[in-house]
Computed example of a mutant assay.
Amino acid sequence: MGIRVGVFFGGRSVEHEISIISAIQAINALDKTKYDSIPVYITREDALYTGEDIARIEAYRNIPELLKKSQRVLCVPRGGVCDLLKYPFKRFGNPRYASLDIAFPIVHGTNVEDGGLQGFLKTLSIPFVGCDVTASAVGMDKYIQKTVLKDNNIPVLDCRRFFVKTYFQDTRRILAEIEGALPYPLIVKPLNLGSSIGISKANTTGELQSALEYTFQFTNTALVEKAVSNLKEINCAVLGDGDAAEASECEEPQSNGAILSYQDKYVSGPKGAGGTKGMSGAKRKLPADISGEQRETIRELAKKTFQVLGCHGVVRVDFLLDMAANQIWVNEVNTIPGSLAFYLWEPLGIPYRELLDRLITLAFKRERENANLSYSYKTDILSNFISGGAKGSKG
């Protein structure tokens, strides 16, 4: 029996479908001589299902029918492993469907990539691949992420953050505030989404208002920043932990418009890419068409960004490059990138199977290190507790 890897994917996110593609890619690439993969699909209603068909991409053409043929499960910790128990419970028979030695979250977007799923796995006391709760949350919140990076002298664009309730309470004031702080053209995007969902460009007050209201269809918080002229978008992945990190090859995504869209990433690549290849099938220049100096600057900035944010495993750092001014900014960090950015490692001689192996090894390393920490502090508070003493230190 190999190491039992529970691959968690799906979830209540607008990037639900992309997560399914990324996860099944990984399941198919795992080394079958070392690992037994158990797919765990998270529905949009947060129910967990597993079964043979859960790992088949064709089965997701009809999800209701797939769930009828699959087993709903609950996660229960047991002495360092996580049991998947069949649900609803039956009076007789073995309730255990499978046991997991490690969890591998391959999820994208809010409610799952933002620390939510990571926190759930942490309470189960099971090792899991990728960023911890804090790094996941900061990686998803673009405003906090920019603040942390700026405080560590990593170049980011100035921005403004706006909440949906404030905007609709005084739209005219918000529009005037933006125009007083940032010059056109502007980019408006959700604070906490990926896959280029909800993003648009504005050149006038009317377009700005439309852009904000479009973004607020997907999020309660919008980010506004200046659009970069003479733009090239460059992506670079980083693999490692706090001890050591290495950068991948750089790619240059290709777009059909002013900004890279969801369709550019997942739909308009080579025939069939949208259905089976996810981010790995998008149109790109690999390696990116940039100078050797720009490549090394970006790769060094990617590693610094990874370490400053306390990332773990593999992340993708997206950059904005003004070709005329030769200025580079970190745009955002993807703590669980589409397709796990495996295609950025292959040019450096790291095949997908090896990348997955290294990610699992890093997760077990973190678990061993965390095992040396103390999570208890002995006191006599409860043994000395008496009626009327419930005020604690303020009593």
Rank of each mutant, 00 (worst) to 15 (best):
G2H: 02
V5K: 09
F8Q: 05
G10N: 01
H16Y: 14
I20V: 14
I27F: 01
T33V: 08
T33C: 08
D36V: 07
S37R: 03
I38G: 04
I42C: 04
D46R: 15
R56W: 02
I57N: 08
E65T: 15
G79K: 12
C82V: 15
K86N: 10
F89S: 10
K90W: 00
R91P: 00
G93R: 00
A103M: 04
F104N: 11
I106Q: 10
I106V: 13
I106N: 06
H108L: 11
G109F: 04
V112F: 02
V112A: 12
D114M: 08
G116R: 02
L117G: 13
Q118H: 07
L121I: 12
F128L: 02
C131I: 05
G139Y: 00
K146R: 14
K146L: 04
L149S: 08
N153A: 15
V156K: 00
L157Q: 06
L157G: 02
F162K: 09
F162W: 13
V164E: 08
T166V: 08
Y167E: 11
F168G: 07
Q169D: 14
I174L: 09
L175V: 15
A176F: 00
E177R: 15
G180T: 07
L182A: 04
Y184K: 08
K189M: 12
S196T: 11
K201D: 11
L208G: 09
S210T: 09
A211S: 15
Y214M: 10
T215N: 09
F218D: 12
K226Q: 14
A227C: 08
S229T: 14
K232T: 13
E233H: 12
E233Y: 01
I234T: 11
N235Q: 09
A237V: 05
L239K: 07
L239H: 05
A245S: 14
E249I: 11
E249R: 01
S255K: 09
N256K: 10
N256E: 11
G257R: 06
G257V: 05
D264M: 05
D264V: 07
K271L: 14
G275T: 11
G278R: 01
A282H: 08
R284V: 12
K285S: 11
L286C: 13
L286R: 04
P287Q: 05
A288E: 02
I290C: 08
S291Y: 02
S291G: 15
S291A: 11
S291I: 03
Q294M: 13
R295Y: 00
R295I: 04
R295M: 06
E296Q: 14
R299Y: 04
C311Q: 12
G313W: 00
V317Q: 01
D318M: 06
L321N: 13
D322E: 06
M323T: 15
W329L: 03
N334G: 08
L340E: 06
A341T: 08
W345D: 07
E346D: 05
P347Y: 02
P347V: 10
G349S: 02
E354F: 00
E354Y: 01
E354T: 14
L355Q: 07
L355F: 04
L356V: 12
D357E: 12
R358K: 13
E367G: 02
N370S: 13
N370C: 10
S376P: 03
G388R: 06
G392W: 00
K394H: 13
G395P: 03
